[in-house]
Design a protein around this nucleic acid. Structure first.
Length: 712
DNA sequence: CTTGCTACTCTTTTT
DNA sequence: GAGTAGCAAG
């Protein structure tokens, strides 16, 4: 008996042991999709005697890839797992393209541009075309370019159907030209260029197809057209394709993911073996019923009836709180209580939200309570200025043609090389068809005065770094550049903020040192392609704050979903488009199904934005929960509104000596949080009228009820 | 060329 | 309400 087959149910086992050829495993959340995929790998190696290096497994995050590798290693030993090609679409393509860079007309040390760099390239292209940034937002233009690339449309093939697209098409052509001149590719290029290479070059294609006898794909519903084409090219004649996915968890349509790839798969492979898994091993039936209640409303889907043996568990707590701050406070208080009662480990609790901006009140509440937490995303580590600066230094050393990175650091710290001076350098480089480094070291650009000297000095430094590049390890080069560039002293300016930034740079230094003696280009590639969840530290026992998107593929004993308000979830940008609305619904579905045992769905009554706050409507998804699974019903807005307006209209103070004032935020052991409407003194006690957001209006004794003020 | 001020935009979601 | 782009002054 093989370890990887233990504990699998009949359907899972049928999937793992499927015969060669195209197979698609369609399965609901918590059904062990990834387990099936890893078991399949183990099965192919140990039962079917497939050499490990002949397998390619593709995931969407490095974290998923790492986990898959670890699990295969458990079954087969680290040696065999080490031979497997398991990686993300982007990392697999980057590797291939680096090896074959000559065939696509790039130097093997090409840079990989992230979202930030891409925006800078769009801005440069707009400037060259003398187009107004205000009129054509770089972000929108870039979205159009990215969409084209995800659909494998080259600048030449781009057909505009509107005036905006007309502009976008022109920028696209310039944009790509700039990328190539900088010896750089963007994220989307990694896929598109690999597809083009495999399509046009039979030798490379056959080499890849021959080598990888089996292709396995995780999260198939998130593939876009380019990735689908890539899968087909990888798969080739052997047709040994094994995909797992769940159309109900498709939440990346906005970046080109196309659930119709499932239909394409059926068309392209008429003999496709489809296996459906509905058994859920994660959540209580209560949570699954809630999830199905929400997802059922989506049109054009094949319903999977989610079933579990885990029993019903506690009901879902739906709570209405006054605003985001109180919502956050509720989360923290509830977590404290759950942990005190030993109902959950802190590390097994997650708080999820639609947008990164929503993490802020939560973070504040955690900090106030002195409770540690883990934050995924937000100001991403690799998006921080100091990190991008240091990486830009390394990138210009690795790839002297990279003007986007050069521009970033040429005057950081200030060296007296301003915009004008930089532009002269750039146009000199362009005129001579040489890199800026060549121009500087050959000394054939002589500018007079301060600027000229500053450039010359920088050129000497730069040339020295490039010479050291092959002599020093990445870690040593890192230290050397930081010191000699003056960036270290620039950053450590004596402020505490400077020290924070320095600490981040030191964290990056650790990554560089741990990288050992890899090539600089490989190191830069790796850091360009890490995602947020990749840095998720499993060993810290603290609650996790993350977006619903980032939560996909994860599971927690206790899940809070906050901000369940129209305009947030579903997001306001999705309200008028049924397709986008369906995706918001799937997002809610993904969130609910992350929970194993307990689920809290929170709705703030007021939402603050742009400084002032406004009354919210509860998310439509809340009303799609079956009555039987929730522990309380929502209040009408009019009731909640009444509570807040009553005290606003009656600003009459409570009598002297009263503990409670109208407008005070209070908490009651049984009724939860509420708002004091009025307070009167009765003999030696105080009668308080409170509107509780979860329980309605009550009249209570101040002395007897256990009523407490919240903060101040 | 750098610094400091004002005015303006911005809120999806990410490899 | 906050981060940043753009501008004026030093």
């Amino acid at each position: 008996m093989f370890a990887f087959l233990e504990g699998l149910n009949d359907k899972q086992r049928a999937a793992v042991e499927a015969k060669d050829g195209p197979t698609l495993v369609l399965a609901g959340p918590g059904s062990g999709k990834t387990r099936v995929l890893t078991s399949r790998i183990a099965y192919l190696i140990s039962v079917r005697n497939t050499a490990p290096y002949r397998l390619m497994a593709v995931t969407f995050t490095n974290k998923a890839a790492r986990e898959m590798r670890d699990r295969v290693a458990q079954f087969l030993g680290a040696g065999k797992a080490g031979d497997l090609l398991i990686g993300t679409f982007h990392s697999i393509c980057a590797r291939l393209l680096r090896r074959e860079s000559a065939r696509i007309g790039l130097d093997r040390d090409f840079s990989i541009y992230d979202a930030d760099d891409q925006l800078n390239v769009v801005k440069a292209a707009l400037a060259e075309l003398k187009l107004d940034e205000k009129k054509y937002k770089p972000a929108s233009i870039h979205a159009a370019i990215s969409a084209a690339k995800n659909d494998l449309i080259s600048p030449e093939a781009y057909r505009a159907e509107s005036y905006f697209q007309e502009i976008a098409g022109r920028v696209y052509a310039r944009y790509n030209a700039i990328l190539r001149a900088n010896n750089a590719l963007d994220f989307d290029d990694l896929i598109m260029e690999t597809v083009r290479l495999l399509q046009s070059d039979a030798a490379v294609r056959e080499k890849v197809q021959e080598r990888y006898a089996h292709v396995l794909v995780d999260e198939f519903q998130d593939t876009n057209l380019a990735q689908y084409a890539l899968i087909r090219l990888f798969t080739g004649r052997h047709r040994n394709l094994f995909c797992v996915g769940d159309a109900d968890q498709s939440i990346y349509a906005w970046r080109g993911a196309d659930y119709r790839n499932v239909l394409r798969l059926r068309e392209d492979y008429p003999d496709l073996n489809i296996i459906t898994l509905d058994q859920n091993y994660r959540s209580t039936q209560t949570i699954l019923d809630a999830a199905m209640g929400v997802i059922r409303k989506n049109p054009n889907r094949i319903h999977i009836n989610l079933l579990t043996q885990r029993g019903h568990g506690p009901k879902i707590a739906v709570r209405e709180l006054f605003n985001e701050d109180e919502e956050a406070q509720f989360v923290v208080d509830t977590i404290e209580e759950l942990v005190r009662q030993r109902a959950a480990e802190p590390g097994q609790i997650a708080v999820m939200y639609r947008t990164n901006a929503q993490s802020r009140p939560l973070e504040e509440a955690f900090i106030r309570a002195g409770m540690p937490y883990r934050l995924v995303g937000a100001t991403r580590f690799y998006a921080r200025k100091e990190i991008k600066d240091v990486l830009a230094y390394l990138r210009v050393i690795n790839n002297p043609a990279d003007m986007i990175s050069l521009r970033r650091i040429i005057n950081v710290p200030p060296r007296g090389i301003g915009e004008k001076t930089y532009e002269q350098l750039e146009s000199a480089a362009r005129a001579r068809e040489a890199s800026a480094l060549d121009v500087l070291t050959k000394g054939d650009l002589s500018l007079p005065g301060r600027a000229g000297r500053a450039l010359q000095e920088f050129g000497l430094l730069w040339a020295q770094w490039v010479r050291l590049r092959n002599e020093l390890s990445v870690g040593q080069l890192f230290d050397h550049v930081l010191q000699t560039s003056g960036y270290k002293d620039h950053l450590r300016d004596g402020t505490s903020e400077g020290e924070d930034r320095w600490a981040n740079v030191m964290a990056l230094r650790n990554v560089a040192i741990e990288a050992g003696d890899v090539m600089l280009s490989e190191f830069l590639s790796n850091v360009a392609l890490v995602s947020d969840v990749d840095n998720f530290d499993e060993t810290v026992n603290a609650p996790t704050l993350l977006t619903l998107h980032a939560a996909k593929g994860l599971e927690f004993n206790v899940v809070f979903i906050v901000g369940l308000v129209e305009g947030v979830l579903p997001h306001s940008r999705s309200l008028d488009d049924p397709e986008q609305m369906a995706e918001e619904r799937r997002l809610m579905y993904v969130g609910i199904t992350r929970a194993k045992d307990r689920l809290y769905l929170l709705r703030p009554f007021r939402r603050s934005q742009w400084g002032d706050s406004e009354i919210t409507e509860p998310s439509r998804f809340l009303s799609d929960l079956p009555d039987s699974v929730v522990d309380s019903k929502l209040h009408k807005n009019s009731e909640l509104l009444q509570a807040t307006t009553v005290w606003q209209r009656q600003p009459n103070k409570a009598p002297a000596g009263a503990r409670f004032q109208p407008g005070d935020r209070v908490v009651h052991p049984r009724f939860g949080e509420g708002l004091v409407l009025r307070s009167t003194l009765v003999r030696d006690d105080e009668e308080v009228e409170v509107f509780f957001f979860g329980a309605g209006g009550k009249r209570l004794s101040a002395a007897m009820s256990g009523l407490k003020k919240i903060r101040g």
